[in-house]
Amino acid sequence: MIDKPVNHKAWFFVFPVFLLVAISAIIPLMTVVNYSVQDTFGNNQFFWAGTEWYEEILTSSRFHDALVRNLIFSGIILLIEIPLGIAIALSMPRKGIWVPVCLILMALPLLIPWNVVGTIWQVFGRADIGLLGRSLAAIGVEYNYATNWLDAWITIIIMDVWHWTSLVVLLCYSGLVAIPEPYYQAARIDGASKWKVFRYIQLPKMQRVLLIAVLLRFMDSFMIYTEPFVLTGGGPGNSTTFLSIDLVKMAIGQFDLGPAAAMSIIYFLIILLVSWVFYTAMTNFGIDAPEKEVN
């Protein structure tokens, strides 16, 4: 090996970034880690608790229930928003005056803050004064998100679909318009049906944007907080108490900082794990297994 000249000046350039990341991410995260392994009775006096809080969280049925709710919710959201987003993107015009019109209409829901979306639907769906609630009641459909858990779920899912399908649409649309014309011409010459054009040209070409769409929608829906909080505050009962709502109750409501910190870390690791699974599965889809070259 040749001795490379060592120049420590580079650290001066790395240091500001390191400082920024430390303040913005590492120090807050470490505070959480710190809380998660200690116990306190106030007065700023802490005792070492080891993995006690982690064990408590991992074995508590309260955590399990919320986790299952989260997984089901994210599953439903992905199953609805991804196909719906693709379908809308496919039916959007590719040129002409309607392109900007469609794009702006699509972008509108994305500009509205979460709590406003929650409030809109909360009022819209109310059985006593809401337009939707009253209308449904008038045609004889019993709908009340405050008392019926299924109605609450449906309302939250509709809110999320209304709010975020546009994101999937815009991502898919950008993928679709990037496909060069010869692909479609070749497919026509090869006698491919519409379905096959979708299956073998459009879908593979959208793979990358779909990966981004799935990851964003998974992470976002797994962290859902504002909508159920505004709608019913996690009710009726515990039916819409997702992990984030439970976490806030535990940390701010009960002031159980230790268990709440442990839960945060677990919550974070689950999102990281599932995102990694999605990423690996989707980037490896349609690619050869690692080369087994035979000479």
Binding site: P182, Y183, I189, Y200, I201
Partner: peptide
């Protein structure tokens, strides 16, 4: 007819 384009057109996932 068959046509070969300027850029290779193949079906990626096949």
């Amino acid at each position: 007819i068959a046509q070969v384009f300027q850029f290779p057109v193949i079906y990626d996932t096949m």
